[in-house]
Design a protein around this nucleic acid. Sequence first.
DNA 1: CAGCGGTTCATTTTT
DNA 2: TGAACCGCTG
Length: 784
Amino acid sequence: MADETSLNPEQGAAVEQTSGPLLVLAGAGSGKTRVLTQRIAHLIDHADVAPWNILAVTFTNKAAGEMRERIEYLVGDEAAGRLWIGTFHSVCARLLRYESKAFGLHSDFTIYDTDDCRALLRRLLVALDLSEQDFPIRQVHGEISRAKNAMIDVPTFAGRAAHNPHKRRIADIYDAYEKGLRANNAFDFDDLIVEPVRLLQRFPEVLEKCRRRWKHILVDEYQDTNRPQYLLTKLLAAEHRNLCVVGDDDQSIYQFRGADIRNILDFEKDYPEAVVVRLEQNYRSTGRILAAANAVIDNNVDRKGKNLWTALGEGDLLQVAECGDDRGEARHVVAQIRQLCSQHDYTLADAAILYRTNAQSRVLEEELRRHKMPYIIVGGTRFYERKEIKDVLAYLRLLVNPADDVGLLRVINAPKRGIGDTTVEKIALFARQTHTDLLQAALHAGEVPGLAARAVKAVATFGELMTGLAQQIHEGGLSLPELAQEVLDRSGYLEALRELDIPEADSRIDNLGELVNSMSEFSGRYEGEGIGLSQFLEDVALMSSEDEAMAGAAGGTLTMMTLHSAKGLEYPIVAICGMEEEIFPTQRAIEESRSQPRAIEEERRLCYVGITRARRHLLMSYARWRYLFGQGREMLPSRFLEELPKELVENVQVQAELAWGSPAGADRGVRRQAGGRQGANRQGTGRQGGGQSSPAKQIPKPKAPTGVHYVADEDSGLQMQFPGAGDGTGGDDLLGVGRWVQHPAWGRGQIVAREGDGDKTKLSIRFGATTKRVVAAYAQLQPI
DNA sequence: CAGCGGTTCATTTTT
DNA sequence: TGAACCGCTG
């Protein structure tokens, strides 16, 4: 809150502790990022540490980017550019590429995401003659992943499984899976951490080199580290012991995926000489909000214990709303937010709606659209996980790594070339017999036994396509976006999409255009060696959906996201919806808690995270009745609500969407008729946003392929049709949030945020995967 | 081989 | 409610 450079005594202590192990227990909103960045600046400016000797590891790309940005501000671009800042995964991927030769790996490996891994497993099950019924892919993959993260290798796993037939089969799958990955020259996410650990354990000279390189190590969100990540930092820091970890045990919300809270709880055991600093002054929230957070988290046993305090004053009561049903809840929450906005002069960008599961967003979206309120959804389907994007990337992957069978299987018949399953199977068999990869086999289609002439021809076409592209790369002179364009054209992918007579086709084509744009942007940044294809692919594989500059964005766009995605963010107004048993905490957590009472604690921490996102106004709501699994159900209020001290809470009651009758039946008919429901607006919040109502949307697009966090094109299109809809910012102009523009250098982009006004208007524009901030007056933007 | 329609399934969270 | 999967048909 205070300016960037002023520090309280604890923060100052952490910054100035420049050597030896340091544990910073940083409560929510206590300025931990400031401490981290200042500490790095301090190391460089006052402790004579070279930037390239500093390794700072974060949990998300977004956090890494923000940290780099803030450090740039402190020490300048030059020094900041030489720091090692990144996620565990990206730093490790880099390490693996550098050191690949040391242990006989290809440096051009492919990173398999969850989908790819499942595709591989699916094939392996067939090969092992096991049914997906008995071995559900999800579960098997989960089990393998858990084993890997516990550093249990295949022989060990098999040893432990000896007595259990089912486990033994899984050991076989695990074995085949590992071999499959290696044969495909691929790593999964887990490997990216686990393999470097093994590498460092096995090769002392590599370890030595790394220790010399990274003389100071800082780890953010330490409570979220898993076993291999812990081992990695331990290995690297064992000698110089300059390890600074920052975290909050109360905000550990990723144990479900292997984060080990002991890493932070036992830090002082591992490093007895560690200095411990607690940051307990919160600069974010009002007293009542903090008191509520403290009261809730106090029910957890598994914690170090701390108490946040604030100098910001009591603030308002929290509101807990009991709603008749989920739609009533949505209506109430939206109405409340509107009211708070007009009362306190906030814009919609100052508000966030949080929920436990993504599925809950739908009802809220409907309500927001009804009011023509612009919103963005953080998370959801990621851009790079869309089918069309993954398809094109698979072509590119295959060009870098011809052994990538999973990639090949993805594209050999996309677009349709008349290569069906039987043909593929024959090729696969041939590949196995001749000990090559699928691409090699496909290139020798003529030799594959039992392949009909027509199939041979089809496969040959595909083979020529790939060799042709490979050759073009070889000859050089092709830029990254040009290469992508070649793939799109020569593969016939784009053409097939154009001919496809379905409504989504257009947005898919747009997405592909964005992909090409993101490549242009990338090659602009990474001029130099080659076309940087494999670096691009790595970036993309490790990219999360949160690489956007949306925190603190002005511009009248409300944010919705899961509680998980909200970690690290803050808003003046926060609403947490679905405060109901079996939703939050989830049914699963409740079940688990029967045998393992602590299972609830992670949910409670999540609740704590949610509460502490709020700066001024916190609204929690539950519905007594909601659609779940497509069916109406009665719900009970969440136990977490009972943990809120009564004196902090104002309780309100909101009636159901339909006052009487079975909500189930009545509800349905009205549903999508946005225009038809007059009563929807009543609920009396006073002023409406944009006066003139408009004709019902012409393209209801039954499917909202959320995708990019910004509600997909058609939605922003909707917003555009109704200027003035927003509120706060006059949305009347061509450079409002949601608008698409053309930039001379970066191509097509979508405006995601807007700050300031007049000459000083700054816009954040997302071009493909990256977001740029520009001054509207200078950027030569062309609205499209 | 592709496309359709019916079925079943599951819904945490993400690098 | 919806996505993903299966089996059937053309």
